[in-house]
Design a protein around this nucleic acid. Structure first.
Lengths: 356, 356
DNA sequence: CGATTTTTGGCAAACGTTTGCTATAAATCG
DNA sequence: CGATTTATAGCAAACGTTTGCCAAAAATCG
């Protein structure tokens, strides 16, 4: 009855529910109920069935079940191609925390990469509309949409992470980019800093807009003009985080009136910037204070140890999964809410009062 | 005919092959053939069918197909829970390169996390035996195996990456851990170093065994005794890469006769070690040369820039996928081969001749 | 122009589950 | 002890595809 016609006596894989039923001496439907439903079958038959299943090494076929019940147990996470590298420090943590939470809920994690080409968009849409997927977590990206099909109309529960899309009706788990940067800028001002150097992410990017906005808010609150901050970068993708810092260091060298504090939108760019700046003879924090965003563990071991705004990515991952599973559980889709998980500044030696 | 009974006129998702067939005025089977087989159906009907499909926004149901043809298009990658963090620098690159290659082949990537508990092993086996998965890439881990079922008997093509399991009959894509470390050790010896400090990974771990073996080989070739190298670490998981370096620095401080060169088995531990050692007043490479393993981009921006043995992980990922897809394509499983992709030393300023 | 081959399209049976419905056996009740 | 309820198990129809097989139509040939 085993489908593989192995000549050897090896059982190998391939025991079917029918095989279990036969061995246990019951009907297929009874096996199905014994394995799934709690009280629907006599405890004695259940025991017999479990024994038979174990003996045969039976594993239910996920696709058959999925087809029958009309839903898969796969959650798709969409990672933006560009952010991918830049946030390399945190992506593994995100994936691990999400995967862990999902598995506890009985789900599996599928990865999709969203580049800016039609191919990858189409691929994701095929996944979504092909019934392969039960829900979506999308990282820091707008929803893919190509020739008529949009992920928004897939009917799938979607949670946006890092990027706030609650306006578009999506559950969103974000951190307080703007506020966190505002606070740290205010702190720098309090220490006496008046001229700032801002290392930008990709122009127009949500995170960049928010974080730069935070800088401006703090300046305004302190009665400082927008001219107090020099923007550098903004042309490259996050993918080239380190490159941004390198270029920014060149940029910095050209300034006649040097800023005394640097606010970087990612740890990577801060690290490479600091490296080059120190190579040019400047001391940190003596000549220049530096703070960045992400909270990569490596910052602790830079010289000097870098102050960084730590994004609680694991917590955010868990929250995103919770929201997603809630949405899957309910048939009524609840109001789209923005869940904010606060980042916090890890203060290290890269920040000090300006010299003069 | 649409399965969702939306009152609104929205088409939404859910067009079936039957719907396409009806709209195109042909039989279901014809639609199936038109969409899949190349020459099996008249070009004119095919056009009609394609138009109908597009109009309805039809996307084939992957589970139905999978059930029928008896195979999924999902590849599972098994990431060891422990390595995960430690190699955080490279995991995203691995995932991205693997995913990219897979998608070109029409496959999707599912993530599985292998911790050392029965839960996660069982979960992976369920995936493998439940028909959800078409092939497996396993990173630096032995095959999960619990109560009778072993991944080895799943009948699935498996490629082991980073860890050489060709002896166990698995296609393996690895780097030349031993040789690379031997060469760099030999180079240090050539520069005049005679006392070494080795930062170990988890005791018994394949990579640690190989890399330490490389050190010993180089010592032996140079006629130096095994006592020339002091082993530190080896108790913690890779997960705590940075911690290993911190502890090792304490360990180093206790030594009466200081080594002049450090060989670390991961960049993370080298970075934290260097940080602490410098904090204690030692200069690198003046007092101590340092080289590590992985090739994380961040090494370039450490002070001093760290020499590191770069693992070509993207290349390895591609190679693993190629091997896997080959294995899937052929019905005869080819001989298990070890594919070695060479690591190369990136020489930076953290290495110099010893002072005296 | 009839006979034969080739192309094309349709019918229906799978794939391995789940589940509504029904039938039987057991248990409870009056 | 017969009647009614309740627990348990089985039958068979789905789920949305693919594909072997056959029939009809078209093309080719003698």
């Amino acid at each position: 009855m085993n489908k593989n016609k192995d000549v050897t006596g090896e059982e190998q894989s391939g025991a079917l529910m029918a095989d279990v039923a036969r061995l246990a001496g019951v009907a297929i439907s009874t096996v199905s109920r014994a394995l799934a439903n709690p009280g629907r079958v006599n405890e004695k038959t259940r025991a017999k069935i479990n024994a038979a299943a174990r003996q045969l090494g039976y594993t239910p076929n996920a696709m058959a079940r999925g087809l029958r019940v009309g839903k898969s147990n796969i959650i798709m996470i969409i990672l933006p191609g560009s952010l991918y590298y830049g946030a390399s420090q945190v992506i593994p943590q995100v994936l691990q925390s999400i995967n862990k939470s999902l598995i506890q809920g009985g789900y599996n994690l599928m990865i999709a990469n969203l580049d800016r080409d039609e191919i990858s968009e189409r691929h994701i849409l095929d996944l979504a509309f092909g019934g392969s997927v039960r829900g979506v977590i999308i990282l820091s990206s707008k929803l893919p949409e190509v020739d008529g099909r949009s992920l928004a109309n897939s009917g799938l529960p979607i949670v946006s992470m890092l990027l706030d899309m609650s306006d578009a009706g999506l559950q969103s788990v974000v951190t307080n980019d703007r506020e966190a940067v505002r606070d740290v800028t205010a702190e720098l001002i309090r220490l006496g800093h008046r001229r700032f150097f801002y290392l930008a992410g990709p122009e127009g990017n949500y995170h960049d807009v928010e974080r730069y906005g935070g800088v401006l808010e703090a300046l305004e609150a302190a009665g400082l003009s927008e001219d107090s901050v020099h923007r550098s970068g903004g042309h490259l993708d996050y993918q080239h985080g380190f490159d941004i810092g390198v270029q920014a260091a060149d940029d910095f060298a050209e300034l006649t009136e040097k800023p005394t504090a640097v606010i970087a939108t990612s740890d990577d760019m801060a690290i490479s910037f600091v490296s080059r700046i120190q190579g040019a003879g400047l001391r940190i924090p003596g000549d220049l204070s530096v703070v960045s965003f992400d909270g990569s563990p490596v910052c602790e071991f830079c010289s000097p140890p870098l102050s960084t705004i730590k994004q609680p990515v694991e917590e955010m991952g868990r929250a995103a999964v919770d929201l997603l599973l809630d949405a899957i559980g309910q048939r009524q889709n609840t109001a789209a809410v923005r869940t904010v998980i606060r980042s916090s500044l890890i203060l290290r030696e890269s920040i000090a009062a300006p010299k003069n």
